[in-house]
Design a protein around this nucleic acid. Structure first.
Lengths: 124, 124
DNA sequence: TGTATATATGAATATATGTTCAATTGCACA
DNA sequence: TGTGCAATTGAACATATATTCATATATACA
């Protein structure tokens, strides 16, 4: 990324040296993109519901589909997304494949999300 | 939502009584949607960068735009999104408007996200 | 080896969403 | 009151993405 900054305004509320200092304290671009990708995973109702389900116990694809009342194909697609993001892992047992959570931070992060959600108790 | 479940398979890995039990332990649909909306907010590089910036100090719109090297309009749009989601608040001071974080859980949740991101240290 | 079952995959479609561009609003100050 | 600046807003556009449908894999079992 080239460093030619847009000249936006002259408000000068923060001097450019301070902006420069803040810039050095910010996480690097790669980390930010990975972080955003991580949160994006949890930002879909289907996927986070799957996470909640797997928080209860390991399940096979068709169990999850039945639980969520959705097609097996769409669950499979979402599980693939979760798998790539390393949020779930799987094991094969004959014909069926069991999925389970693969991140020890997930319950923690989801719990905090619930806190935030319940505090802002507005009708959306 | 009607409760006519799709009959997906007969794998029967989990009996329907157990699925029913798990169903009762799952968060309700409204909470899940709010949670997904919350995580979706953090699931965009621009928005999470804004959050990181505001973690450092309160800033006006043009400062953020300069810092992120983005147009002031797009920052303003994103700030509106963050505002609606109650992640940021603002105060007016003359012509400029200062934004700051409005959620005491944010640094916590972002920190855990960073943990997850750094542990899965694959080259994506 | 052939059939049945659980899961995965690819293409297509519909929808959601981030940024830009062109205005407009709100406040300050001369 | 009128000009200037910071910020907001709405429409348009391009891109991303969730689900569906049809089909392909992979394993079990007869």
């Amino acid at each position: 990324m080239v460093d030619n900054q847009i000249e936006v305004c002259n408000c000068g509320e923060i001097h450019s040296e301070e902006l420069q200092k803040i810039r050095t304290e910010m996480p690097d671009v790669t980390l930010i993109h990975r972080l955003a990708d991580f949160f994006k995973i949890l930002g879909d109702p289907t996927r986070i519901t799957i996470v909640f389900a797997l928080l209860e116990k390991e399940m096979c694809v068709c169990d999850i589909a039945t639980l969520l009342n959705m097609s097996q194909s769409s669950i499979s697609h979402q599980l693939k997304t979760l798998k790539i993001a390393r949020l779930v892992k799987y094991r094969r047992s004959g014909k069926t494949i069991f999925y389970s959570l693969d991140d020890r931070h997930i319950d923690e992060i989801v719990s905090i999300g619930v806190l935030h959600t319940k505090e802002g108790n507005d009708g959306k």
